[in-house]
């Protein structure tokens, strides 16, 4: 009986910890991402395989890559259990993927800028399985990994996108 109560207390504590700290951390992360993306919008970003009007005699194009692994929190994992039972959109994991994707892309653009390029093309984002969930589905740790690749180059095209924060579609 005592053991059961102890287990319950620990679970409730972890849930509260996951919910409060996890939510605060996520909000802060999204805030930082908004700021970084606003600046990054000045860099020309395309997914096209061709170089959009490269500067003649510009720096030699080079490949850049970035990757991010983001872990889920205890509360989200707990909620996902219910969601799996009833079905429907898993909003908590949706934000997890979004965090990983946006962080990876932001890192990529920043890297290009630091190297002195003003454009990136052929941006490719893909997920990778690092938690080993495919081989061990019972594994508790939920984490997503996004890897990104692009080619940085110099372009004549000036991006017209203003450095503002993007409105979120609801």
């Amino acid at each position: 009986m005592g053991g059961l109560i102890f287990a319950l207390i620990v679970t409730v504590f972890l849930l509260i910890l996951g919910f409060t700290v996890g939510t605060i951390l996520e909000k802060r992360h999204f805030g930082r991402l908004d700021d970084r993306e606003a600046v990054n919008r000045m860099t020309l970003q395309t997914q096209s395989k061709i170089f959009l009007s490269p500067t003649a005699g510009g720096k030699t194009p080079t490949m850049i890559h970035s990757e991010t692994v983001v872990a889920s929190d205890y509360f989200k994992n707990f909620l996902s259990g219910f969601r799996k039972f009833f079905g429907g959109e898993m909003k908590s994991y949706h934000s997890l993927m979004e965090r990983a994707r946006r962080e990876t892309l932001a890192k990529l653009i920043e890297q290009a800028r630091e190297m002195g390029y003003n454009a990136v093309c052929n941006v490719r984002l893909e997920p990778a399985d690092v938690s080993g969930a495919i081989h061990n589905p019972k594994k508790k740790s939920v984490m997503v990994c996004i890897i990104a690749t692009a080619t940085a180059y110099d372009s004549d095209v000036v991006t017209t996108a203003p450095p503002t924060k993007m409105e979120k579609p609801v």
Partner: peptide, 17 residues
Amino acid sequence: FKNLVGGELKGYTELLT
């Protein structure tokens, strides 16, 4: 431990890089 509160796993990220 990071799985309790969520967030970026810097160690794994570095490893991938």
